[in-house]
Design a protein around this nucleic acid. Sequence first.
DNA 1: CACCCCTGTAACGCCGAAAGCGACAGGCAG
DNA 2: CTGCCTGTCGCTTTCGGCGTTACAGGGGTG
Lengths: 119, 119
Amino acid sequence: METEPHQKTRPPAVAQHPGTLLREQVLPGLHLSISQAARDLGVARQTLHRILAGEAAITPAMAARLEQLCGVSSVFWLRCQNRHDLQRARKELDAVLRHIPLHPLSETIVKKIGAYDGR
Amino acid sequence: METEPHQKTRPPAVAQHPGTLLREQVLPGLHLSISQAARDLGVARQTLHRILAGEAAITPAMAARLEQLCGVSSVFWLRCQNRHDLQRARKELDAVLRHIPLHPLSETIVKKIGAYDGR
DNA sequence: CACCCCTGTAACGCCGAAAGCGACAGGCAG
DNA sequence: CTGCCTGTCGCTTTCGGCGTTACAGGGGTG
């Protein structure tokens, strides 16, 4: 911890899929095998496996299940997934995005809709 | 504003689709017609219309386009969408969720993965 | 040894959602 | 009348999540 001492170990600049967290941190912490966790979640073993492997995304439905399983907020899981999907989308649309003209939106409206500037 | 005076007009308890924000706040603020906005975004007019009508969701790709168009963060748009999808998923899975056993996850791990408790 | 459970992979098929396209009807300004 | 915007319908394609079946291998236990 040389950069910022008492920082919450915030997410890395380049986000890897949320499955890694599940595999390396959560499941061991719950003392659950993949197979057992899948049974508890009420999904196929392969379905969970695909997520751990990063081949499938965490859907809202899965996020809700996970929240029920380990108490970690579904919003958290979706946020992880979003980070991942977003930077993938940005790369693929890179060419298209350049052609989209930026129109200025008044600061009043930005605040009204609850979009606190940078986030 | 009787409940909490200087609150940011936070999102309503029951979230309606993000398209409403686009239609009623953002597009007028940009002085753009639906057709024109669709052209700028590089998508079909119907595609944008479906989102405004709440018949389609804001995908990561669309969120990136919107950010480019009006400067409002893609993360914001996805968060709106998530709120909406999540409460829909919860209702549909309601029965299933009850059967998922809750396993305790140590507080240390929760902090390590960056899931700040309730969110 | 056989038996059982776990894991990883692969190959299907189903289904729903996003997106594009064409077309039509109605509104409204020029 | 002409043009532009809007809402809506129908159709097609594509993609991704999910379940199912199946096979191969590891590892522990009676």
